[in-house]
Amino acid sequence: MNKMGFAISSALLFLAIGLSCLFVVDQRQFAVVYTLAEIKEVITEPGLNFKLPPPLQSVTFIDNRILTLDSPETRAIQTAEKKNLVVDWLIKWRVKDAKQFIRNNNGADLRTAEGRLGPLVQAALNEEITKRTVKDVLSTDREKIVQGVKERLLDDAKTFGIEVVDVRIKRVDFPASVADSVYSRMVSERKQEANRLRSTGAAEGERIRADADKKREIVLATAYKEAQILKGQGDAKAAAIFGEAFGRDPQFASFYRSLEAYKTTFAKKSDVMVMDPSSDFFKAMKSSGKK
C-alpha cells in the first residue's frame, strides 16, 4: 500500500512537472520564454514547445495578428490655409519583433503600446496635414498623406518592434463650430441656385410670352397686308369695270350717278328739304304747260 501510494504520487508529480514543461504556441501568437525574467527565446512558429518548469522559465504570449488602432481622440488640425480639420485615422499594425517590443514597451501589454503609438501617429499626421490645403486632404493628396505618415512612423516602428501595415484616414470633417457655418453656406448656395432657377424660369416664360405676342402681331399684320392687297385689287377691278362702262358716255354717266346718289341721300322722312319753286322740277308748275 505504501509502495503503491508512493508510486501514484510520484507519477502525479512527474506528470505535473512534465505538463509545466510543455506549452502550446497558437497560430495567432508569439511566445516569449523568459529565463529568470530575462528573455531567453522568442518562438514565432506555432506548435508544441518545451521549457523548464516555472521557477526557472516562464512564458508570455503576444498576439501576432494585425491589430487596429483607432484614433483615440479627435483633435482639430490646422491646414495650410488656416482652416481647422478634424481628422480621424486608424492604423493597422502588428508585432514584428517581440523581443524589441517587450523591451521598449515594458512588457507584453498591447494596450500600453497603443497608448504610446497613438500620439506618434497623431503627430505624424499633423505634420503632413499642416502642409496641405483642405482640398488636398480631402481628395488629391490622401495617398501621399498616408504614405508620409507611414514613412515618419518607420523609425518608431522599428524601435517599437512593430510593423505598421497600413495607415488610413477615416473621417475628415470640419469641427462642429465650422460645420454650422458650412451648413449656412450650403443653404445660401441653395438659395442662390433656387433663385436662379426661379428667375430663369420666369425669364423663359416671359420670353415665350413675348415671342407669342410678336408672332401674333406679325400674323395679324401680314394678314392685314394681304387683305388690303386683296381689297385694293377688288377696288381696282371695280374701278376698271366702272371706267369701261361709264366711259362710253361720261356725261350721261355722271347725270345718272348723280340721280342715283340723290335717291339714296334723301330717302327718309326726317330729311327736310327747303325748296325753291324756280328749280327745274317746278318749271311746269309755273309755266302751266306752255312753252
Binding site: Y262, K263, F266, A267, K268, K269, D271, V272, M273
Partner: peptide
C-alpha cells in the same frame, strides 16, 4: 325723292 322727304 320729294315723295319721301319732308318738304318746305
Amino acid at each position: 325723292i320729294y315723295s319721301n322727304v319732308t318738304k318746305v
